[in-house]
Design a protein around this nucleic acid. Structure first.
Lengths: 189, 189
DNA sequence: GTCTATACCTGGATAGAC
DNA sequence: GTCTATCCAGGTATAGAC
């Protein structure tokens, strides 16, 4: 991995662990093993480097989600596969966590990839749910967009609760609670 | 309001808006109108003041939730009242937002009120759902604890999505999606 | 209780040598 | 491309006067 790439990866890790405000250029340099001059040679500054790192994390989130959504099985099975996918619940979402950082939200460039990522995710999931509804797999009264938004929110909120409790189990509880609501109806039919 | 109280209230606002790491003693002093010496007379430092502020916010969250839970109506109505309560979705949760702050989570004193708040909230809601299940208002197959966790997660995640989208409507969508899942079954019965 | 002075460290970045 | 030197603002706190 070359220096530029190490800088991006180190920044991704730090943004995930400490957020944008909590991440200093110095910390990035130390973790990546790059020197001061090196970092400022490859990037214009902290915002520029953060933009590259956020873009990379957003891309990865999208790819991983798409892999579950496009996988085999019924709609409910694919949604469940996505929700139950192995995650480091205590670390939280590398993209969602940045919405809590004032400096990120105040910078349109940094903010855009975050906005787009969640718009894509909710939309993709809503489409899947709509198909499940059309095929009769899901209740006809189910609102695809609202339900998709709620499911994504369960993930993001599950991270919050897991961190608050200091336990990844809480995240799993939230996911199972949501899946229970989504599927109970079917079992009782 | 005396100086000590103004310091606490200003800190609450700043923690809400910028997080712990993003809030400086200087900013607190400016917002509260208290001087440097005054702040360090009333509090030992930033962590001490933050502890007072977080405790206050946690207390308020709890009181407001209890007001909805203990209100009139069926279990579903009370849960809906809580979820739909007016909130400033774009600002997020003053307590939940702190789980994303590394410095807060690393300090056991600051972390405790956050952990306790969500443990209480989930527990209180689970008890309510259990009663709804016992009375037949809710499906017998519903898991009260998992469902309560999912509902609280929808709120916390709804804030994340609203901030990402820059629109409070997304928060409302998440809430309605969750309530839809909770109640659709009944309508179809 | 509040003020000002002072202190030291870190954040974030530029300049110019190599 | 990378290194070291340097810079100035801000973060966080203490000391001592009023």
């Amino acid at each position: 991995m070359d220096t530029r790439e190490r800088l991006i990866q180190s920044t991704r890790e730090l943004l995930w662990e400490r957020g944008y405000t909590g991440t200093s250029p110095k910390a990035i340099q130390e973790r990546s093993g790059a020197g001061q001059g090196s970092m400022y040679h490859h990037f214009h500054g902290k915002p520029d480097l953060a933009l590259a790192a956020i873009g990379r994390s957003a891309e990865e989130l999208r790819d991983r989600a798409e892999a579950a959504f496009a996988g085999p099985g019924t709609v409910v099975e694919r949604v469940a596969a996505y929700l139950r996918r192995e995650r480091d619940a205590l670390k939280g979402c590398p993209v969602g966590r940045l919405t809590q950082d004032h400096a990120v939200m105040a910078d349109p460039d940094l903010r855009r990839p975050i906005e787009e990522t969640f718009a894509w995710l909710t939309d993709r999931l809503a489409g899947l749910l709509a198909r499940g509804r059309a095929s009769g797999e899901l209740d006809a009264g189910l609102d695809p967009v609202a339900t998709a938004t709620a499911l994504v929110a369960v993930l993001q909120g599950g991270y919050v609760l897991a961190r608050a409790a200091g336990s990844a189990d809480v995240y799993a509880q939230a996911v199972e609670g949501a899946l229970g609501l989504l599927t109970l109806r079917k079992e009782n039919a």
